[in-house]
Nucleic acid binder design. Structure first.
Lengths: 372, 372
DNA sequence: CCGGGAAGTTTGAACGATCAAATCTTCGGT
DNA sequence: ACCGAAGATTTGATCGTTCAAACTTCCCGG
């Protein structure tokens, strides 16, 4: 073949005009059935495919969503973003959209990329990750009226239901509450919490889930809780040292829930070294590592997060990005996804037979689940 | 502003024609200096940015590279591809290129996506990962003369230096040889190998590195080596069981090198349970998990792999993708990257003080290195 | 002072699609 | 049968850029 076929080639073959071919593709409803079939078979015979750039130029839409790939995959939890990215890509495929990546060294650089990608009409919208208090990126996007959705609540000064700030997030509070209640159901009372220093919205929210579960089951006071909680920066070695200290000072501790799998992994290592190989530990994120080492965890349901992202961007079934600030109908401006417990060996008191198979190869959190 | 400025707006402001503005942007050399400066300041004043879709339509280039995001991030080693993707995105930025993602359920589906993305002029080239023996994707791309580079040698029937099959890979053989020699240098002799079943090009290549190191240091025969090697499918639990067996039958084993971090992690768990907390173990991939738990490993230098990918696609400094089968000049059609040892606690006999800091927060393999 | 060629710049067309408006068909109601 | 409106299809213009060729300007040697 000399050249790729165009709408004109298809039109000629089907004995209709350009525009009719275009209509068959974009608004099949307004074309008479006979014509439509004729055009469709011409398309099939010629193997015609619309030229994406030409369409984008004319429609002024790129059907592309920009995502920044963070500079450093942050330790073992970094895989959360990677899995989210994967789920996003699948959703994008289903909606006729594409995901374009870019990198940036810091937030200002990221904003410069926003400008460049917007002005070049490269992307219709952005998806943000790793949001923080009063994130300047969100401010910029809202001010410029650029469509976007943040993965992670925009904790900060603006109200969470601000219609200009769309977000999707995982209900970490519910997740930790579920994990804690699971342990309570297995008969534990003195359940500790290992989290990050106060001040990160995400971390504070997760801790609150543990606190609520403890308070509602045992009426624990703030003092009780403070004695059972430890805070440390993210990382396996830091968690390990923190728990080594904790188990020395609190030898009545029966179990532990953690704000992340990294922390939980460090904690697991510490309790095993301390001669308590079956001390129950719960992580958060359900990373591949948790799966590999048999760590119970809380799965973020990233597929649901991704489909929520697209619902906010494009409406329930829309094929194009909605203008900034105008989600379809009365849709709420956010999605809060309830995560799912994944119970593995690490949260059982008794040793688990080594037969294996229960934790190998599986990827979906189906081993044993408990919702809400 | 009502509308984004176009070349015409810039041209009017600078008192020149469209095409001159275009020339300033694309071939500054042919424009007289005075004119160029005038146009450049008009561009700056108006904040003009070329419209990417219009340019792509006219030039018939998308300046975009397609990458398939694998359906399942394969366990803890999945992060290798994620980090490669990140390195690719950075390189792309530097070359004025973009990375577009797509997903596919299998190889045939992936090929259908190739067709769609090519015919829609969405991408100029593809980057393949996870290649296997006689990979049908490579055959299709070569037959269709679509530019591409594979990360991973196209092990199989075609010769490795086939000019139609460009590839970049990490020299796994050198990596395992380095790891083995490092252990030999520390005085070990009976060094075992834990790898995958024979038949995967990558696995066989890595094993060969261990064999060569052993043979050249101790003159080990094939029989000696067979007794020291174990094979199992990828995965932490499988590795753990395999090593539990191995240490029972070979109580003279002194150290272990593995084909992946997953295997190494399982091995570490097994030897620790067996009461040998300081048994030296080496992994491969330098995943975040290895870093987190202090596992010595072999780093793939993914930044070098990514820049090699772009050198093959676009030439040393080119700004556009080269046609299929015609790399610039006499460049070899491939890049074989030598990996780098990252030595951590897991390969030391003596316990390491718990002070930490040596393995926390770092990301680059700088803790202690040894090249070739 | 003119011819010729290189260097610099402009003009018209094209890339492949969709939008907006014009034209042609179909069909029901009187 | 005829009219009008709704339905279906076609035509002309346009999105913003670069290509190819035409045109201008400039410089130099004869």
């Amino acid at each position: 073949m000399a050249q790729l076929p165009t709408v004109d080639d298809v039109a000629e073959r089907a004995g209709v005009s350009r525009q009719t071919v275009s209509n068959v593709l974009n608004s099949p409803g307004i074309v008479r059935e006979g014509t439509r079939l004729r055009v469709e078979s011409a398309i099939a015979e010629l193997g015609y495919r619309p030229h994406a750039s030409a369409r984008r130029l004319r429609t002024r839409q790129s059907s592309t969503i920009g995502v920044r790939l963070d500079p450093i995959s942050n330790g073992i939890s970094g895989s959360v973003l990677d899995r989210y990215l994967h789920a996003l890509t699948e959703q994008a495929d289903a909606r006729g959209m594409r995901i374009m990546l870019f990198t940036a060294v810091d937030e200002d650089d990221e904003i410069r990329h926003y400008e460049r990608l917007r002005d070049g009409a490269d992307v219709d919208a952005f998806v943000l990750t790793g949001t923080r208090y009063d994130d300047p990126r969100i401010e910029w996007l809202a001010r410029e009226r650029m469509p976007f959705v943040a993965f992670g609540r925009p904790w900060g000064s603006a109200p969470l239901d601000d219609p200009e700030r769309l977000w999707v997030d995982v209900d970490g509070q519910a997740g930790l509450r579920m994990a804690t209640e699971h342990l309570i159901g297995r008969g534990h009372r003195r359940i500790g919490y290992l989290g990050w220093p106060a001040g990160s919205g995400t971390g504070d929210d997760r801790r609150r889930g543990w606190e609520l579960a403890m308070a509602s089951a045992f009426g624990s006071t703030a003092e009780d809780l403070a004695g059972l909680a430890t805070e440390t920066d993210e990382g396996v070695p830091t968690a390990r040292r923190a728990i080594e200290t904790l188990v020395r000072t609190r030898d009545d501790l029966e179990a532990l829930v953690c704000a992340s799998d990294s922390l939980a992994l460090g904690a697991m290592m510490a309790v095993r070294e301390a001669g308590m190989p079956h001390f129950p530990v719960f992580g958060f994120d359900n990373t591949p590592v948790a799966q590999a080492v048999g760590l119970s965890s809380v799965d973020q349901r990233l597929a649901d997060v991704a489909s929520g992202t697209f619902e906010l961007l494009m409406g329930a079934t829309g094929r194009r990005v909605l203008p900034h600030g105008f989600p379809a109908g009365d849709d709420p401006r956010h999605r809060l996804i309830t995560p799912q417990l994944v119970v593995r060996r690490s949260s059982h008191l008794e040793p688990v037979e080594e037969a294996g198979g229960t934790t190998s190869g599986d990827h979906e959190p189906t081993e044993k689940e408990q919702s809400t």
